[in-house]
């Protein structure tokens, strides 16, 4: 095969959690495996691998997306945030704190994806109703909690983020 621009690997430039990475990747490499296996950021989980469960949710340019359904080459030039990059080392994002305070997790498998989706929600809607929270979580499945504590964790975080916004 000889296409004029064809090659086995493609160079990409991706900023992940504020750090610039240059890499040569196979076009078929999925973004979630680039993050987990090439960068060692294993906080992003693979649940279903079929775009259903949301365990692989990350932010691309500030938007929650399922990284098992994005090619690494599509992330060229994009700013990515994963669960590891939500808060500075040793601290927790209010949504992470909320999940701890309100027991928003049991096995924890779905949690990174839940948190990334919740952060995206609270960035666009600072005081969501319970219904809006549940609607926003449509793309994230949890097999343990029954969702009630997850919703409470997000409500807790929303409140915390609003009050810290007012005080600062």
């Amino acid at each position: 095969m000889s296409g004029k621009m064809e090659r086995v690997t493609v160079p990409i430039n991706v900023t992940v959690n504020g750090v610039k990475h240059e890499a040569e990747v196979e076009p078929r490499l999925l973004l979630v495996y680039f993050l987990r296996e090439h960068l060692g950021l294993t906080g992003t989980h693979v649940g279903c691998d079929t775009s259903q469960c949301g365990a692989c949710t990350i932010h691309m340019n500030g938007r929650a997306v399922k990284s098992c359904t994005v090619l690494a080459v599509q992330a060229d030039g994009v700013k990515i945030t994963t669960i590891e990059g939500l808060a500075p080392e040793g601290t927790l994002h209010p949504v992470q704190e909320g999940f701890r305070e309100k027991h928003g997790l049991q096995c924890g498998y779905c949690t990174p994806g839940m948190i990334m989706t919740a952060v995206h929600l609270l960035e666009t809607n600072s005081s969501p109703t319970e219904e809006e929270i549940r609607h926003a979580l449509e793309g994230n499945l949890c097999r343990c909690t029954g969702y009630i504590h997850i919703v409470e964790a997000i409500q807790w975080a929303a409140q915390r983020m609003r009050s810290s916004h007012v005080s600062s």
């Binding site: 775009s51 938007r63 929650a64 997306v65 399922k66 359904t69 989706t117 929600l121 449509e138 793309g139």
Partner: peptide, 9 residues
Amino acid sequence: IGDVQVRNR
């Protein structure tokens, strides 16, 4: 359509 993540992509 789908869910938030699907609508974002």
